[in-house]
Design a protein around this nucleic acid. Sequence first.
DNA 1: CGGGGGTTTGAGTGAGCTCAACTATCGTGG
DNA 2: CCACGATAGTTGAGCTCACTCAAACCCCCG
Lengths: 251, 251
Amino acid sequence: MMSAETLAPMVAKLARRSCLDEEARAHLLALPHSLRKIEARQHIVRQGDRARHSALLLDGFAYRHKIVGDGGRQIVSVHMKGDLVDLQNSFLNAADHNVQTLTDALVAFVPRDAIAALAAQNAQIGMALWIDTLVDGSIFREWIANVGRRDARMRTAHILCEFAVRLEAAGLSQGPSYGLPMTQEQLADVLGLTPIHVNRTLKGLERDGLIARDKRSLRITNRARLAAVGDFSDQYLHLEKQSVSLVAAAQ
Amino acid sequence: MMSAETLAPMVAKLARRSCLDEEARAHLLALPHSLRKIEARQHIVRQGDRARHSALLLDGFAYRHKIVGDGGRQIVSVHMKGDLVDLQNSFLNAADHNVQTLTDALVAFVPRDAIAALAAQNAQIGMALWIDTLVDGSIFREWIANVGRRDARMRTAHILCEFAVRLEAAGLSQGPSYGLPMTQEQLADVLGLTPIHVNRTLKGLERDGLIARDKRSLRITNRARLAAVGDFSDQYLHLEKQSVSLVAAAQ
DNA sequence: CGGGGGTTTGAGTGAGCTCAACTATCGTGG
DNA sequence: CCACGATAGTTGAGCTCACTCAAACCCCCG
C-alpha cells in the first residue's frame, strides 16, 4: 500500500520545475497516503466537499469542472500522471468545483495536514508546492483568454497544442500521435463550445492538414502550423526549472 | 519610505483568510520594499519581464491581462487594495501576462527573495501566501466558467456581484453603491464581449431594476435578484478564515 | 467652445447554437 | 458468431446571440 516509490510521479513532476534535494524527495515519497484505483467517469471530489485529503493522480487522466446555473458544464482543467489535482479543495474550506476521472486512474489520497506540515518544515517542498500552484494559475489565465477571446478554430488548435506539450513533458507521448482520452463532448466543455461545433472545427483542422484523426486517437501532423493557427506558445506552461533562490531562506 | 504600517493593507488581506500571529504580522510589515505612486493606465509589469520584485497594491485598482494573436485583449483579473498582484510573475521565470493600473495607484515593490525567505522561515506566512495563491486560482476557475458557459446577461450580472462582494470584503464600499473604476470597454475585456454588447446588457439589467447607473458609478438595486440572474454564490471567493492546522507543523 | 474619450443607438451580418436524424464503433449476451 | 444496445461521432437546416460598422451623443476639461 505504501511502497517507497508509489508517489514517484508526483515527485518527478515537482522536480521538473523546482529544486528538490535528496532529503526533500525522500520526505515527499514518505508522505502517508492511501491508494485507490478509480474507474473512468467517477467523481474524486464533489463541489461542497470538505476534504481532509488531497488527491494525487499517479496514473490515468482526470479533469475538474464546474456546473453553472442553466446546467452547462465547464471543464476548468485536465490532469495527467503526477498532477496534484486538488490542493485547493483540501486547503480551502469547501471544494468549489468537482474533480472526476476521465479514464481508469490510480489516485493517492494524502492527509492535508501531512502536506501542510511538510511544506512548513522543508522550505524546498513548500516552495515547490507553491510554484506548482502558481503554474496552475498561469494555465487558468491562459484558458480564460482562450475561451474569452479566441474563436473556435484558434481555441481548439490552442488546446490541442497544450495537451501535446504537457503529455510530452509528462513523458506520456509515444511519438507525434497521442490518444486524447476525451470525447468531443468533453472537449466541448473544455472549450466552451457545443460538441457539434467541436466536431466541425476538428474536421476543419483535419481538412487543412494540421491534424489527423483515427477513431478516437489524434495526431498532430503539422505542429508549427497548428501552433500558429492556435496562437500557441508554451511560455505560460513554465516548463523550465524556476530559479527562486532559497539560499537566503537558510539565513 | 518604509514606515511601519505602509504594508498594512496587504497584511489585512492575508489575515482575513489565514491565521497570522503578532510575530508573523510584524515580519510581513517589516518586508523591505520601495513605494511608487503610479498613474492610471500605466504598466506595472509587461509580459516577458523577468521581475525580481513582487508588486503589492496598497491603494487604487489594477488589472492583469493577456493579448491574443488577433489583437484581442482579455482581462484575467481585477485587483484592489491589499492584493498581491504579481507573485506569479516574480516567482515564475518570465511574466506570462501584463499588469496595469486602472486608477492612480500606490504600489509597493518587494524583493522576491525576501518574500521567499520569509515564507520559508515562518510557516504561518508561507501558508498564508499559498492560500492567497489558491484563492486566486479559484477565482480564475470561476472566470473560465463565466466566460465559457454563461451568456452575456448572466456573465455581466455575475461579475458585478463579484466586484460588490470583494469591494465590501476589502472595506471599500460605501453603502450599496460602488463606483466601478472601469470603462465599458474594459468591462468588455473582462467578460469576453464587445463594448457595444456590454452597453446593451447593462441597459437591460438597468431596465429590469437590478442595477442603477449614474455617469460612471453603478449601484446594485436588487442584490438578491442580480445574484440569481448571474448564478452567483460567493463560495468561490473563500472569504472566511481557512482552517489549515499548523499545529502538526510545529512537531 | 472645441476636442476627445466614453457611451448610446441603429442596421445588417455571421459564428456558433439548437434540433433532429443518421452512422460508426464497440462491448455484451444469446 | 451474430444481434442488440449503448455510446460517440457526423451531417443538415434553420435560428439567434453577439458581432461589425457607422453614426450620433454626452460630458468633462482645457
